[in-house]
Write a protein that binds this DNA or RNA. Sequence first.
RNA 1: GGAGGGGUGGCCGAGCGGUUAAAGGCACCAGACUGUAAAUCUGGCCUCGUAUGAGUACACAGGUUCGAAUCCUGUCCCCUCCA
Length: 420
Amino acid sequence: MTSLKSDFLQILTERDFIHQATDLEGLDAKMAALEKEGPTSAYIGFDCTGTSLHVGSLVQIMMLRWLQKCGHKPIVLLGGGTTRIGDPSGKDESRKLLTDTDINRNMDGIRSIFDQFLTFGDGQNDAMMVNNAEWLDKLEYIEFLREIGTHFTINRMMTFDSVKLRLDREQPLTFLEFNYMILQAYDFMELGKRYYCALQMGGSDQWGNIVNGMELGRRAAGLSLFGLTTPLITTADGKKMGKTADGAVWLNEDSLPAYDYWQFWRNTQDADVGKFLRLFTELPMDEVRRLEALEGSEINDAKIILADEATKMCRGEKAAAKANATARETFVQGGAGADLPTVVIASGVFDGGIPVVDLFVEAGLGSSKGEVRRLIKGGGAKINDVKVEGPEQMVDESAFGEGQVKLSAGKKRHALVKLG
RNA sequence: GGAGGGGUGGCCGAGCGGUUAAAGGCACCAGACUGUAAAUCUGGCCUCGUAUGAGUACACAGGUUCGAAUCCUGUCCCCUCCA
């Protein structure tokens, strides 16, 4: 890559954020002119398909954060309107249609995430959040077709992956979904007109949608727009990043406690440490290079730093410190950290003792008694770090040395039970 | 509208009257090895039960049969081809 002049693109390149970009030099020149011409604003759209976003969206969010750090203006576009259509990109089947109340609820959840990562306000490079329902809901069909529809040919639309893949696999694509890209294109143009937004970023599956928006903006409004996509982030063994046993790794505290979030990063594979440090932390590159070069068990230090940094950003300094402390106490000192999932059980329940099996289910370390029984059979269940010998074992109040009991299912899952 | 094919456990996918709680694979969980890694090996993977076992289960509802995921009837859903 030839030398880039703008800080923003320089950083993005160095940290491997960029998969494809339109006219990188042109964009670079525009962004480098920051001091004279003011900040460039750029947007990323997020559909409101769930109450939270997961780490899959984190690359995108990090880009907005860097954008702001470099003195530009990030725009978060919530897809209040487009979510009512459903993006067919990268999906074999159309998604179930969401109700408006679902969408509104989801929007609230998602909104709260961005407060962690960006600074919102009215200043020149403060972030802003907009909802595309604001303009999409008002569109008039015939008028829209005449003004916008004339700029799209079916011939070209058929060549875009989101459409082509679906058709190639002989999967149905509804007319509703077919319109998604047009509406997203319209968004880009609208943001260009309203807020001088010149750049749209997104995941690699958004390339087609982004390019469409650029072309529409140019043809229909004479705007000069740019597009940039991130690579699909996969783990070293080729899986899509961000799925764990219990599902997605959510960014919202409500959906995933900070301790688990921290653990997710802590359990990164060796081979991914460098990549993740680049993308998901703001550590200087020298530091990243030093950390990823660590070998053997030393790389664990790098993973801890990764977990600290990532958690700090998403959940705040305190939560990160707490998660770190809990992990240290639990794993290094073999104790029980305060941040472990905790269940309070009325002390009366223990009169005469209760079966271990029930206790584990109660503590959320197993979804059924059978599952816990199997765990015990496999030798994976421990109480206060003592292996549970058999499923018939009973637990009574004598186990509560300091008012709590630590239960472990395997090496990584722990929970505390307290008397209440 | 017509003709045909199909709906099996989280997913893929065998089975097509009893030997089927249902092959195999993936995913997942635990153990061993380690470094809270990867790879590998071992065990597990519907619910209840210490267990012999029992209860549910192969889209849904009925029926035939000593016995059905397997045969029949109806319903719902999906796909393909034709118009």
